[in-house]
């Protein structure tokens, strides 16, 4: 399962790129996907790219990316890289760690 959500109305490469590593359809994984999408819609609108990767399908990735806890969200862009674990239910923390409120502010 490699689900790519590219909400990009203008067709140019978005400045917000994320990878979400999950384990199949486990409750934590599904929750993380739903929660993230909600947050991103609210703060980034269509200006983001989210790659969802199932590590069961690609176990070799786990060592490469140094994964211990799952679900794991990695912010690839903008730099620096940020890592968040959990089902993303702590909405404030997600927003704060990814500095999304700033983005929202800029968009307005």
């Amino acid at each position: 399962m490699k689900d790519q959500l590219r909400n990009n109305a203008h067709g140019r490469k978005p400045s917000n790129i994320f990878s979400l590593y999950v384990t199949g359809a486990s409750p934590n994984s599904s929750r993380a996907i739903t929660n993230l999408k909600n947050i991103f819609e609210r703060y980034l609108g269509s200006q983001y790219e989210l790659n969802i990767i199932d590590v069961y399908q690609q176990p070799q990735l786990v060592s490469k990316i140094d994964i211990v806890a799952l679900p794991l969200l990695v912010r690839k862009m903008p730099l620096p890289e940020r890592r968040l674990i959990g089902d993303m239910s702590d909405r404030d923390k997600v927003v704060r760690s990814l500095e999304l409120s700033k983005v929202l502010h800029e968009r307005d």
């Binding site: 934590n28 070799q60 786990v62 211990v68 806890a69 702590d90 997600v94």
Partner: peptide
């Protein structure tokens, strides 16, 4: 490698990553 300051915890998680890694 585990470093607390690099990782933010946002809710429920598990150590499946470690399990998969070890299993692999």
């Amino acid at each position: 490698r585990i470093q607390r300051k690099e990782i933010e915890e946002t809710g429920e998680y598990d150590l499946d990553g470690l399990f998969i890694r070890l299993g692999h």
